[in-house]
Amino acid sequence: MQELIQALVAGVLMGGIYALIGIGMTLIMGVMKIINLAHGELMMVAMYITYVLAQYFGLDPYFSLLIAMPSLFIIGVLIQKYLLNPLLKVDSILPENQVLMTVGVGMVLTEVMRFIFQADFKSVKTSYSSTAFYLGTISFNLPMVVAFGIAVALTICLFYFLLKTDVGKSIRATAQNKEAALLMGINAEKITVMTYGLGASLAAASGTLLLPIYYLFPSIGGPFTLKAFVITMLGGMGSTVGAIVGGVVLGVAESLGATYIKMGLKDSVAMFIFLLVLIFLPGGLKRLTKV
């Protein structure tokens, strides 16, 4: 029983960070209708930024959120503006051209980092990296709890932004119906650029939050891109609430899989859920709840 609760706690805490990755992905998917296959790689870039700041400037990883997020926002904006949007005008055989471009972008990001930092494993050591506190017999890893808290706070800010501000409303309008949004005078191109930047900076946030508890190497992005899909599919494309639920479900499923099945098959659990959702519930949880 205790084992189960411990697994659930670890799963939910991880799920909070996953949700943050998933929300970024789902925003991009909702507005541009493309799968961003560079999502994990954007996160990886942010992790390296945080790593450099911590290693050479002694900056606390949580503080470097303030630098990593804006930097990734800019990178995201540039990618969308100069690489993805121009493709809309190009005529090609496969409609998935933009998706394939994100594959290329992800590959280049990974390789640039490999070029600069080599393929070694890196980690950021903080004084609190392995601190834990106990509630009863259940242990809570401190950085995980802090990361969870920041993730929740960022999510609340994001919802405020999407629901209350003009730009946020424009993003939601474009996601719902691009043509109608255009007719209402929304500059769709600007919105796509904003959204990609926003998605990238959310990925940056999750990367930075993960760094104190994780390790870092250039090809770490791939697995996280896959996780971001699973979350997005689980929650339903374009649904931010769905992404939160999806993130937590994925975190818990992985944690239970690692505890009760086999550590090495942790990621297979995610993929298996993903397949089941794709086949039996193609709209994701969104279809059940209509959120």
Partner: peptide, 27 residues
């Protein structure tokens, strides 16, 4: 399994199955 899905969903399903194969082969 996958041809009931279209477009990007098909692509995603093939990624998922590929990863499952890799992890099963590893484990």
């Amino acid at each position: 399994i996958c041809f009931r899905l279209r477009g990007p969903y098909f692509a995603l399903a093939t990624i998922a199955i590929g990863e499952i194969f890799r992890q099963v082969a590893e484990n």
